[in-house]
Every structure is written in C-alpha cells, then in structure tokens.
C-alpha cells in the first residue's frame, strides 16, 4: 500500500546505496584476430537485434592472456560498441589492459569467482581457433523470469528459459535451449531457435498461440483439444512436434 507518502518526511535522504545482483552476458574471447571477432560478433547480434541492442556486456580476456595473446582493449571496446553492445566490464585482463579499460570508463572485474572464463574445451578443441573466437558464456546459463510476460513483450534467452509466471497472449518467448513455464502459456513459445532439435518446452497449462522447436511449429488451431489447458511437455520426434501431457 502507499507507504512512501506516509513515511517519507521532507528531509528524506537524497540517495542510498543498495546491493543488487544483475545478470549480464559475458563475452569470452578465444581469438586475437579483430576481423574475425568483429564478423562473428555481428553475426551473433543480428540473430536477435532487439535483444542485443544496447545490451550491457562484460568481456573476458583471461584465456587469451594465458596464451600470451594480449588484445588491445581500445580496439576491442570499439568493436563491441559497433555491434550495438555496451561494454561495462573487463575480466581477466593484464595490468596494461586494465589500465586502458579504466581510461575508457570500463570497470575491472576479478576472475576469482568466475566459472566459465575458459572457452569450453569440447567446442574449442576440434575447430581451429580462427573459427570459434567468440563463445558467450551465457550459452550455458539459465535465464530466470519471475514476473508475468505481458502482451507485446518479447524475451530471448541464449540458454534455457524458466518463467515462474504466466506468458500472456500476444507475448513471445524464445530460447536457444529449453523453455519452462510454471504458469499458463498463452503466447508464442519458440525453443531451440538456433537449431537445437533436442530442446523441449514444458508448461503447466498449454494455451499457446504458437509453439516451435528448432523451427518446426504448430499453431493453436492445430493443437488437439485433449492437451489444451493441460500440463504438457513438447519435443521433436523424427521431425514431428509431439505434445504430451505430463501426468
């Protein structure tokens, strides 16, 4: 209820420090070739331009520095900005890099509690470095949303997407991984949007306008009445979308 008005006297403090946790994508670099970095970054961001537009990002150069490949931070920051992202931190930099970052107004983060600073071996090993310099660490992360996703809103997750509320008609949720909706799913849900055919959608009440896995979709009209409003899981089996009630 409207407590602010009642409790705040005229000489209320003008500011207050609060501790808050944010989820920010980390750009882990594994090539020092700026041309390739720029190309691949542009390609990534163009997949979901709205999502990436002005998105904050922390870049991680720890792995490169271990290979003695020290990037020029000013060039890197310019490339990131050019892709429409806003660099808000450096991780794993050497002294010179950290100094350059600070000169650009980019804060320095420590690597102590970072889990995914090294590019995953499995992905990096079989390919030449030149082909996989950009491995966003968010790929393995899960996005958790606790508020309803309303009509007209659009959410994109690079990993799994878990929503602890409803998804309204007219809303759209996309994930490269799985989608879980612990509420009714009335909007459009697209899992495995980068082609992951193993992705699944789970929801506690199916009333979706459209569901899709790896580009194979079904619209509301094509969903059988027996699964409507039921808790279901949705997956691909031999290129067919299967909607199965969870009992």
């Amino acid at each position: 209820m409207p407590t602010d008005a009642q409790n705040t006297p005229h000489n209320a403090p003008a500011l207050e420090f609060k501790s808050s946790t944010f989820s920010v994508p980390v750009l882990v670099l594994s090539s020092d070739d700026f041309v390739i970095i720029e190309q691949q970054l542009q390609k990534k961001t163009q997949l979901a331009p709205d999502f990436f537009k002005n998105s904050p990002v922390v870049f991680d150069v720890q792995w490169l520095n271990k290979q003695n490949l020290a990037l020029d931070i000013k060039t890197l920051a310019a490339i990131i900005r050019k892709a429409g992202l806003l660099p808000i931190g450096i991780r794993g930099g050497n002294d010179a890099q950290n100094k350059h970052a600070l000169e650009l107004g980019i804060p320095v983060y420590s690597v102590h509690n970072s889990l995914a600073a090294e590019p995953k071996k499995a992905e990096a090993a079989p390919q030449k470095t030149a082909e996989s310099p950009v491995v966003p660490a968010t790929k393995v992360e899960t996005t958790l949303i606790t508020h309803p996703v309303r009509s007209g809103q659009r959410l994109y997750a690079e990993g799994d997407l878990i929503i602890l509320a409803q998804v309204s008609a007219g809303a759209e949720i996309l994930a490269e991984g799985n989608i879980h909706v612990y509420g009714s799913l009335r909007g459009r849900a697209l899992a495995g949007v980068q082609g992951n055919t193993g992705a699944r959608i789970f929801c506690s009440q199916l009333a979706a306008e459209l569901i899709s896995i790896a580009g194979i979709y079904k619209i509301s009209e094509d969903m059988r009445d027996v699964v409507r409003d039921k808790p279901v899981q949705i997956y691909l089996q031999e290129h067919a979308l299967i909607i199965k009630e969870i009992t």
């Binding site: 309803p148 996703v149 309303r150 009509s151 007209g152 809103q153 008609a169 007219g170």
Partner: peptide
C-alpha cells in the same frame, strides 16, 4: 488484452523500470 499490453509497458518502459 489492452490492459495486459499496458502492464507490459509499465514494467519495462517506466522510470522505475529504467532505473532498476
């Protein structure tokens, strides 16, 4: 439906939302 749309804007396009 329009109210739902407005609720989405309230939670993303307001000053409180922008200032976190």
């Amino acid at each position: 439906r329009d109210s739902d749309r407005m609720l989405g804007l309230l939670s993303s396009k307001s000053r409180r939302a922008e200032r976190n």
